[in-house]
Design a protein around this nucleic acid. Structure first.
Lengths: 225, 225
DNA sequence: CGTATATTCTACAGAATATTAGAATAAAAG
DNA sequence: CTTTTATTCTAATATTCTGTAGAATATACG
């Protein structure tokens, strides 16, 4: 076996993993699975695509050993094979944000109102949340909150926000977060909160950005609540 | 603009970057450029492929804003657009190593002799190099050493090793490193050193793994040598 | 057991991509 | 100014990939 063919083999294997990152739909699947395990049907619903297409993409992901599945009754539940895969997605996204001007522009105009981003550092936010100066709400679906959430955050899914808004104390600033910079849930949440006359801002981070930065997270099973 | 088309646009942009990671040749180009800037011709020589194919791959890399070029006389010199891109390559490779059994097996059998890997942690190696207990040699081409190298390492390209072997003190253990786990230069170096009766081992890390781990590097222009 | 639902499998058309080779540029060297 | 060398551009082909749709399978439910 000569040097060239050894190298070809090695790089080819890595390209197998790289290949799954080349499709927008697959990246969106990775982002969703990075929030917690999901059924094929749930993924298809979020992506607004045919369930059979999602199944095909999941097969590609499985071939590259990035996801695994288990059957739960009628459903098949998929999950990422490790935190390193979520971290890879975060880093890929950050590289794209850093180098692709088009992406940065699209992101900027996604946040309709520029003042809606809470400008504090992660550490400061953590401190303010701990001391109760601000209320941090996780507006993702409950299951995702259960899988992992920011410290001191309470679950208040955007779908229930309008109904449960009274749970939020009027005298405190509310900080919302969702799945990450590409997710529109927190955007929707502050729209609702502002409509109701609340002081509310969002942060772009989700649990994966938080974890990639080496900061701690909590999960419901771990805190017995 | 509805939510779906906004998301499609965002993920599509990231997929542009992901797409460049799907080709083995392009990954190898990234690895080489991560060692320092290179001409098209030098890349083609290392990859053993037609220069026109390398040029085509560089064009796709440029379209994704991952590399930039400048002309230097007869040659065009390419470079990575930032350290984050080298870090992305390292992380992608690590994910592949972690999850693809085939890759791990191929890597294991690449290192012919299992005892040839120096088992110390990065920190311990750094300490031993500082104190002079071991001699760390960088066996890559001189230009790559100049661009960045491990602290306390001296340049001794594998092409000059046989001729310059007397420069290495006989009473000290020699530790060789090269471009990273996929590079065969250090393997070749310890083969030569063993043939000459020297105690020599290698480490799998290269400067990019070192940098990704947050450890410091040196470069020749910075240390005025 | 039959039906409904979730998922996978298979086949295929259209799009995108990798590779090759010939022609065109651009700078350097004679 | 011609030749040489490095690189890019263009066109053509082979291959792979994405998305679509019909058929098959697997489990739950009645």
């Amino acid at each position: 076996m000569n040097k060239r063919s050894v190298k070809d083999l090695l790089y080819e294997q890595v390209a197998r993993v790289g290949g799954v990152l080349s499709s927008p739909k697959r990246l969106e699947i990775l982002e969703l699975l990075a929030q917690g395990e999901k059924t094929v049907e749930a993924l298809a619903r979020e992506l607004s695509v045919d369930i059979r297409l999602v199944s095909a993409h999941l097969r590609t992901l499985k071939a590259a050993q990035l996801v695994a599945s288990r059957r739960q009754g009628k459903y098949v539940v998929y999950r990422l094979c490790g935190d390193d895969i979520a971290a890879l997605w975060v880093q890929l996204r950050q590289v794209a944000e850093e180098h692709l001007l088009e992406l940065r522009l699209a992101l900027d105009q996604m946040t309709a109102n520029p003042g809606s981003l809470y400008p504090l550092s992660r550490e400061d936010l953590l401190e303010q949340a701990r001391s109760g100066q601000v209320i941090v709400i996780d507006v993702r679906p409950r299951e995702e909150y259960d899988a992992a959430h920011l410290p001191y955050a309470r679950s208040l899914p955007v779908s229930e926000l309008e109904r449960r808004i009274a749970e939020l104390p009027r005298n405190r600033r509310v900080i919302a977060y969702c799945r990450g910079p590409f997710c529109l849930l927190s955007e929707e949440a502050i729209r609702i909160l502002h409509k109701k006359g609340r002081r509310a801002q969002k942060i772009a981070d989700g649990v994966n950005e938080w974890r990639a930065a080496g900061l701690p997270l909590e999960s419901v099973s771990a805190e017995a609540s």
